[in-house]
């Protein structure tokens, strides 16, 4: 009747549960986080803290100054990167020399800005 030792062991080894925490500011990060050479975080307790960010938090960071800064080493790939990836403030793009670039930028901006206006907004799915 009793389960074999192997079976009991299998039952007791589910996916380790980890604690879910919402981090709203860097200062809330636990002190015992360390980094590996690859840059990932681990905690001092096995199966312990992992860094979670929910969708609302991620979206709330979208327009922070650090997030709006153009990346320093993004290659320019026609058709993939935004046409002009030189440093530019979003509100100064309207005065671009090239109308074409401005149009494309504003089209992309519209896509990028939409979710920030209403973080909970979801797209509609036609059934």
């Amino acid at each position: 009747m009793s389960a074999s030792p192997a079976a009991r062991q299998a039952v007791s080894q589910g996916i380790p549960m980890s604690r879910r925490i919402n981090i709203n500011h860097e200062s809330e990060l636990p002190n015992d986080l360390s980094s590996t050479p690859g840059g990932s975080l681990f905690s001092t307790t096995p199966g312990g803290t992992r860094v979670y960010y929910d969708r609302n938090f991620m979206l709330s960071m979208r327009n922070s100054p650090l997030a709006r800064t153009p990346p320093t080493n993004l290659p320019s790939i026609p058709g993939v990167t935004v046409p002009d990836n030189r440093p530019a403030k979003p509100d100064s793009r309207k005065s671009r020399d090239s109308d074409e670039d401005a149009k494309r930028l504003s089209a992309i901006d519209a896509t990028a800005a939409a979710p920030a206006k209403d973080e909970d907004e979801q797209f509609q799915i036609e059934l």
């Binding site: 938090f57 960071m61 979208r62 997030a67 709006r68």
Partner: peptide, 16 residues
């Protein structure tokens, strides 16, 4: 998180 947005906001969306 900031690094993600820095990258993502300068790339075209899939539909483009």
């Amino acid at each position: 998180v900031e690094g993600f947005w820095r990258c993502y906001q300068w790339l075209k969306r899939p539909s483009y």
